[in-house]
Amino acid sequence: MEALLATAVGILAGCGVFLILRARTFPVLLGLTLLSYAVNLFLFASGRLRLDAPPLIGSGASYADPLPQALVLTAIVIGFGMTAYLAMLALRGLSESGCDHIDVDQGR
């Protein structure tokens, strides 16, 4: 399971970085989303991967570390808000200049 998760994080992060380096805002936005997925999975794994272990003490024989789950939740909420804001900003840039190029002076 560790290998699977590590591969998933790696692929997501790789695709994210590739897309972030594109010149238009929409791929960059997608890239940031992918990168944040990768980071969230990574953060989740920092509490170690366990099967059949709820994050509650006393609920069963074993329990998972609840803190990374709380951290991931916070990170997801923040990342979601940021992405929404960036999408709005990119749309505004598009409507103001008529192109969605990421650079100030190019693409006009």
Partner: peptide, 27 residues
């Protein structure tokens, strides 16, 4: 708007790295 897009993208990448660092530290 243009300055804002670059600034936001850069800082979102920065935040991703911040979280990676925190995950590594907690791990």
């Amino acid at each position: 708007t243009r300055a804002g897009i670059a600034y936001v993208v850069l800082n979102l990448v920065g935040s991703a790295f911040f979280l990676l660092a925190l995950g590594l530290l907690y791990g």
